[in-house]
Design a protein around this nucleic acid. Structure first.
Lengths: 215, 215, 215, 215
DNA sequence: CATGAATGAGTCTTCATTCAT
DNA sequence: AATGAATGAAGACTCATTCAT
């Protein structure tokens, strides 16, 4: 959020930064494209620079190492997704379980699906040793948001909210990953969201203790 | 399993092949170790050979390319898992949903968990371009087995078994992956299996139409 | 020739390309030197690069494979020779046989002899599988030029010009090859040209039918 | 000659040597085949051994280094040819030029043509650094034989027999090499020998001084 | 700031040769 | 003697990174 807004604003005032931003964006896009077209193993700084229409030197101006570039691209992607999730989770505090699930699933599917190729391209990057801890952090933020939400559910209490959140996260990630790896993700999309809600809600309702009213 | 036996037999007759087998095994193990210790990107044939206690030349005698080695390791792993799943699914044809889930979850968790490190190590390998189609095949075999099982459920019918199987697979994979990436998977294990059953069963019961008796 | 000029011109305008050209030239020369000093089998990209005073990486910037380098060197050499032959042959259309032979032999000996070492170095390269078809092409161009010339001889007709050209080519190549492989080619040079003319002319006069005047 | 006879004789007495000889022959043949099928650069001891139906170890029993093998094959080939030439040249001492040429050309063409593939396969080997001096030796023997022959010509004297022999050798080699490299050598064969005689005789008659009778 | 030529350490892969069986 | 598994030096080629222009 800050980055998006900030960069837009800065751009108007400082034309050079506008150019910078355009360059950075071009590099980001090029990275995704190369990732999709060639795979992580064949992604080279030169290939990225070429596709971005800049020289390697320029690329290194903005990203002092290859790792930094990959990390930045991954970060942009994951940041957008967690933020979406955090916002969605926060917006349904104190709601009932079914509303929560509906909202969260909807947000998650939308986030992952909007940039389908990007998400696909970044799986391998996320697995890389050097980004592991960051990925874990983001995962943790995600779980924190969900856990905070679940705790406020108007119609349910959980014995082990930590575990429940863990499973819920898994329930969201598993099918999405499968979907992204499928050949024609678009075709199942409509039904998919409904099914994902069913999966999550089925689980949560099984795990919930009915809320004690006079508490 | 079959492989071990077959080779064991041969080994007694042909001492040279016994040595070969020992070498191949050492290379397999070394690959997993390097994968865990260094990651896919830093896995080199020399490092694998060194850790296996053989020369590069020997490694190449058995695996004509690096890819072939990685593929073989992945194959051994996945083959064991699908076979476990196929057997488990076949063993509960015509049972009730809860038995099915219990059996399948148990088999899956056990398979993935037995060689925890191996499973962890191979995620990145499975993502590589060249093994994609094979991974997909195995995934398909898995789904076929589950779908065949679900169709025989004594207490449930499904409108769209294909989709249900798809989601069920996702429900199994997601949390397991999360578990493998967690710091101390062993600690949650006991509770985990129960939770995974809950997730699967909650979903399936929601999706099931009660079976028509006089059909 | 054309290449040098063209690149020279470009070089003045684009200083970077001047550096490039210098690098390429150094690599060419180094290749010949390594070929002579070590032989084709011991020619390695590193050795060439070292002798050229550049790094392997630089070499690969200009020649994407070892083969490409060898091919380029061979091409430069053969191209110069065929062109010399084509020009020489064209320049004596309609002359008498002895003039033709004198001119062609002189051009051929000069071309092969100018860069004696280069010619010597490239025999093995020319034999390599991958350059075979190119070598054949050049040979064909050469024969075409000679055949066209012979057909216009003012004092002779040939029954089978194709065969005659074939033999003439062999008559030129054989002794030259022997000369290049000799220890002190320079010493025989003077007499050699005369002898080669004798060989060619002796043959052609035997094969020629006297020209019918009223044709 | 000695080798062929000797080995045949020994074989009858010492059966083990017969087997040896068979093995050696198989290795020789395999070498030629590999040379033709893969080229010198891709000729490996293992490939040769495989094609010969023996193990590498066995191959090394007979040829302690790869070079030794190649050298032996080359030697067998060249030895046969020089010997043919020496015999042919010796058989026409004191004959007239045209008889000499006819005999020598016939022998040479026959020798090179009998094992067309072998001759083709061995060009690259002959060019290798390590066999250069041997090849030169054989060339020298050849020239010595021809020179001795020319000196006895009944109808001609030469001012510089050395040079004349040199050119004659070149005149023989050049066209033959061209023929071997051609696509369908067999087709031109008949006419070819006649042409080669014409080339040689044309040259020799030009260079000859008529023999002084009362000398 | 931008460029892209240059660098050279690091990878994969091959193959002559050895040696335990 | 024969076998073929094992060795490891050496070669082709790549690519992150630097730096003169």
């Amino acid at each position: 959020m800050r980055i998006d807004n900030g960069q837009g604003l800065d751009a108007r005032k400082q034309p050079q930064q506008a150019r910078s931003q355009a360059t950075v964006d071009a590099i980001f896009d090029a990275t995704i494209q190369v990732l999709l077209a060639e795979g992580l193993q064949r992604l080279t700084t030169i290939r990225v620079a070429e596709r971005a229409g800049v020289s390697v030197g320029t690329l290194y101006q903005y990203f002092p190492q290859k790792q930094a570039l990959l990390f930045a691209v991954l970060q942009r992607h994951l940041e957008r997704i967690v933020r979406t999730m955090e916002d969605a989770a926060a917006s349904v505090h104190n709601a009932c379980l079914s509303t929560m699930v509906e909202t969260v699933v909807s947000a998650f599917v939308k986030a992952k699906t909007e940039d389908l190729d990007e998400a696909r391209a970044l799986y391998a990057v996320a697995l890389e040793l050097d980004s592991r801890s960051y990925v874990r952090q983001v995962g943790a933020r995600n779980r924190v948001a969900l856990e905070a939400m679940l705790k406020t559910a108007s119609d349910a209490d959980f014995d082990d909210v930590g575990m429940t959140t863990f499973m819920l996260t898994g329930a969201l990630l598993g099918p999405i990953r499968l979907l992204l790896e499928a050949k024609s993700p678009q075709s199942m999309m409509r039904k998919f969201r409904h099914q994902l809600e069913s999966l999550c809600l089925g689980y949560l309702e099984r795990e919930a203790r009915p809320k004690r009213l006079a508490d």
